[in-house]
Amino acid sequence: MNGPEPPRPGRPRPPPVPPGLPGGAPAPLGYPRGPWPTDEPPTRRFPRPDPDRCDGCAACARACPNGALRTAPSASGTVVSLDYGLCLFCHLCVDACPSGAMAAGPMGELAVRHRDDLRLVRGGPRPDPERLRHEVGERVGRLFAGSLSIRAVDAGSCNGCEVEIAALQWPRYDLERLGIYFVASPRHADALLVSGPVTRNMRAALERTYRAVPGPSFVIAVGACGISGGPFVGSAEIEGGVDRVLPVEVYIPGCPPSPLGLLYGLWLALGRAEPRLRQGELPAPVGSVPGTADRRTPARRPP
C-alpha cells in the first residue's frame, strides 16, 4: 500500500474526530482465555426463583410468555420449575413477583452439554435426569486439535442470533484469535452452529447440510429457538428445537445469547471449559473465577 491517497482539492472534508470522544470501537477482549471482562455492559440476567421467599401466588408463571416457568403447589410450599432452554430473558416474571422471590442470577456462562442441565427445579424433587450419550463429547478437543471450523445454519431464526453470531467475527470478540473459523461450506466444517426453531420449511435443508459435513462432526444449538423453539413453542410450523432433528452436543441459551455467551459455548464445545450449570443450578457465581482457564487440550500433550 502507498499510504493514504492525498485529499483532492475542492472536496469538503469532515472535521477530524476529536481524540477521546466516546463512540469508537470497544477494547479487544481477553475472554475466554482470560477472566470475564469488567467493562461489559450489564445485560439482563437470568431469573432465579428463591423458594424461601416464594409465597406460591404463581404470578410469575402467569407472566411467563411461553411457559418456561411453571409453579405447582406441594406439601412443603411451591415447586418452581424453570427451563433456561425456553427462557427469553424478558424478566416479566421478575417484574411480576410481588415478594421479590425472583432474583436475577448471573448471565453469560450458561452453555451446557446436556439439555437437562438447563432445567431448574426448586422446592421439590426433580425428575430423573435424562443423559443422552454424546457421540463426540469430551473428545472434541482431541479430535479437532483445539481448532474448529464452523458452518452457521439459520434454521428459521428471527435474525437476532445471527446479529450476535456475526458480531463474534468482528473487533472486540475476534473469534479467529481462538482458532475458531466460520466457513462457507458444510464440506469444510467440523461443526454446525444452528439457530432458529427448525421451521418445517427448513428441516430438509438442515438435514442435508448435516449430512454434507464430514465426520467426526457435531452440532451446537444456539438460542432459545434452537434449544426448544423459544417463543414459537406451540406453532404448527416448527419442529421445536434442533435436537428434534439432529443430535446436539452443546446448547447455548439466550434470546439471543450475547457474544460472550456464544464464546463460552464454543470454548465449552472445544473441551476447554467445564459446564457451570448443573441441572439449572449454578455452583459458583460467574466471573468469580476465571473458570474458563486455558486448559491445554489433550491433543497438545505428547502421546
Binding site: 469508537g24 470501537a25 455492559p41 416479566l92 473487533p171
Partner: peptide, 27 residues
Amino acid sequence: GAARANGLREEAYRTLARLTGSRLGRS
C-alpha cells in the same frame, strides 16, 4: 473498512445494552 464499521456498530449495541439491559433492546 468493514472491521472499523463493525467496531462502531458494536459500540451502538453496547450503548443499547447499557440503557436497556439487552443488546438488541429486547423486552
